[in-house]
């Protein structure tokens, strides 16, 4: 059922980050005999000095710059990811330190495959909505890995999105409600001591991605008394190009509604950042009064859905940091050899 805090909350600032580098899907197919079509045109590749922490820092700086909120006013810095650089040592502490939010701040890492970032977002709503905190930073960031030659290698990408949650009165977009739909569904997993995840091929679609996305989305629409045509924009988790297009159609959203937030054809699947980056791209173009429907998805499996309404504060604030389009535009393509070196796919000793 729908959840919303007693004290209204919203997004006070938002920030995107996408690495500069890309690899074309056809370049991966050149190496691994991709006889069929490719699931995306290209995917983002983190540079050799980038990881979940560095990308989180830049996205978070953009969110704080838009909000004009001083870092020492943050009550929590939470990083959702499946690619934290350390197994033991929080990403959140380093991100908080780089922002200048330490020491009077909660910092922690969240995990739930591709919806780790939206887990942090829902928790942030509760923290601010209870009055316990004024501002909480929820970040989704990943440098995802796919086994060389595996279908996942075409899409496993990198990016970060940061959402600064605060009181609705200060928001660029008020969050009107959320649902969370979770079942134990083993569509995709990685054991602790292995480098690459295992996935269930077609099982990852139905019942996993489609079942959970529809579950969360339909319930939120029902509880709000809303229908898809009531929303100006919609964004879904985007593990490839086709899945979000398909689930949007199943639910009754149009291609026009999802177009501004559909980034996967160019950057692949940014995992914990994927749907949240799509939301950032929508906030880059939305007008006051617009409504936005967001549905995330994480393997394991579950979805969170959110309904947002854009306020008059958005147009001025979005100019204070680079737009998602600026990060998309600076693309620099690398070949498979450079990609293999940077992503640690060469055995050196």
């Amino acid at each position: 059922m729908m959840m919303k805090p007693e004290r209204p909350v919203g997004i006070v600032g938002y920030g995107a980050y996408i690495p500069r580098f890309r690899i074309a899907a056809r370049e991966i197919a050149r190496i691994w005999d991709g006889a069929g079509g490719t699931p995306v045109d290209s995917k983002s590749v983190p540079g050799p000095d980038e990881d979940t922490i560095t990308m989180s820092i830049e996205a978070a700086r953009n969110a704080l710059a838009r909000a004009h909120v001083a870092p020492d006013r943050l009550s929590a810095v939470w990083v959702g990811s499946e690619s934290h650089p350390y197994s033991v040592k929080p990403s959140g502490t380093l991100v908080a330190e780089a922002l200048g939010a330490t020491p009077w701040v909660s910092a922690a890492d969240w995990e739930f495959a591709c919806k780790a970032g939206s887990e942090a977002l829902t928790a942030a709503m509760g923290m601010v909505g209870s009055g316990m905190a004024q501002y909480v930073l929820a970040i989704g960031a990943d440098t995802a890995q796919g086994r060389p030659g595996d279908a996942l290698e075409y899409t496993a990408a990198a990016g970060a999105a940061a959402l600064l949650i605060g009181p609705a009165a200060e928001a660029v977009a008020v969050i009107e409600g959320t649902t969370s739909y979770v079942t134990d569904t083993p569509d995709f997993f990685r054991r602790a001591d292995t480098a690459y995840p295992v996935h269930g091929h077609r099982f990852t679609g139905e019942p996993a991605y489609f079942g959970a996305s529809r579950g969360a989305a339909e319930r939120l629409l029902h509880d709000l008394g809303a229908k898809p045509s009531d929303f100006a924009y919609a964004v879904f988790h985007q593990p490839n190009t086709r899945f979000p297009q398909t689930v949007a159609r199943q639910l009754g959203f149009t291609p026009q509604q999802i177009a501004p937030g559909l980034l996967s054809p160019k950057i692949g699947n940014a995992y914990s950042a994927a749907a949240l980056l799509g939301l950032c791209a929508i906030l880059d173009v939305a007008k006051p009064g617009d409504t936005i429907f967001v549905t995330t998805y994480g393997s394991g499996a579950g979805s969170d859905a959110y309904a947002l309404r854009v306020t008059d504060a958005l147009p001025e604030r979005r100019e204070r940091a680079p737009l998602t389009a600026a990060y998309l535009a600076r693309e620099a393509f690398v070949d498979y050899a450079v990609y293999a070196k940077w992503r640690g796919k060469l055995v050196m000793e």
Binding site: D51, I53, T54, P85, L94, E319, P322, A326
Partner: peptide
């Protein structure tokens, strides 16, 4: 450790 710190890059368009 992984050592983090400042680098500089060409300005991203704003």
């Amino acid at each position: 450790l992984i050592v983090y710190g400042y680098k500089f890059r060409p300005m991203v368009q704003r």
